Computed example of a mutant assay.
Amino acid sequence: MTDPAPTWTIVIHGGAGSMTPDNLGAAEEAAARQALAAALEAGAAILRSGGASLDAVQAAVRVLEDDPHFNAGRGSVFTAEGRIECDAAIMDGANLDAGAVAGVRSTKNPILLAREVMDRSTHVFLAGVGADNFGRAHDIEAAEPSWFETPERRRQLDEILANPDMPFDSAMKYGTVGAVAVDGDGHVASATSTGGLTGKKWGRVGDSPLIGAGTYADDRAAAVSCTGAGEYFIRLGVAHEICARVRLAGWSIEDAADTLIDELGDLGGKGGVIVVSPDGSGGWAFNTKAMYRAMAMHDSAPEIAIYGHE
């Protein structure tokens, strides 16, 4: 008698923002959907073979970091000074282990560096040159600035610098990437990676690498990855708050995600979340026009979407 196929779910995002068919364009939309499909399959392949959710979310995010259509790794946005500074975090719901990095400039895949911080240091969060140096000491692949830079991101910086009062939502077409998953053993995990905000100053760090704000995973509740206006996600502790309402108040992940996004909007924030629970349910919530998103489950065909009506 053969063992039953593992039950699993993976959900990914590539950022929430003001994308429409008109401002995105057919070619850009097709490329984004293709990248989401590739990232989804990278994670799903691990889960399908009985692998761990932690490895699955890392694999999915790494694919998106390598794709220039998203604001993470290659294709990250520029700071006001014309640099690229990346943030990332990863968390294991089985034991609450976590690793995070912020302001890294020379690590090709920040999510691999965050995982290394989790696995091979006594710390949770490293920043700046020290984080990059930790990566070099542990053989995490480095990259020159030219690896990260793209003409479109340079154009966006020029637009922001020329229009410093431009509203956040109108400036944001692409964004943070993330993945959440539950594996056949019922363990959840979350991973998030970003280049931050175009034209950011003074070493600004958003919610993505902050455990509990933009990234959180707990087998007693859910795994969550966030994207959007980070300052609001930090103030609400969105990722942890979703898990707390599931674990302590008995809410469904859908109700918790929807309510936190409503509360985010009440404060004036825009963005979205992806969620998955140990029982295999998964989904998303967002209050922007669109959100790059995709989901696959052991017993259903992959779902890939961008716009709000999908």
Rank of each mutant, 00 (worst) to 15 (best):
D3E: 14
A5H: 10
W8P: 03
G15C: 03
G15A: 01
G17F: 07
A31Q: 14
A32R: 15
A38H: 13
I46T: 12
I46V: 14
L54W: 02
D55N: 13
V57F: 05
D67G: 06
G73A: 11
G75N: 08
V77R: 02
F78K: 00
G82P: 02
G99M: 08
A100N: 04
L113H: 04
R120A: 15
T122R: 13
G128Y: 10
D139I: 01
I140P: 00
E141W: 01
P145D: 10
P151A: 15
S170C: 07
S170P: 00
A171T: 00
A171W: 01
G184N: 04
D185P: 00
A189T: 03
A189M: 08
T198I: 07
G199M: 08
W202C: 04
G203M: 09
R204Q: 11
P209C: 08
P209L: 06
G212C: 11
G214E: 08
G214N: 09
R220F: 07
V224L: 11
C226L: 04
Y232E: 11
I234Y: 01
G237V: 05
A239S: 14
S252I: 00
S252Y: 03
I253C: 11
A256K: 05
G272I: 08
V276S: 13
D279N: 15
T288D: 06
M297P: 00
M297Y: 00
S300R: 15
A305H: 12
G308E: 12
E310Y: 05
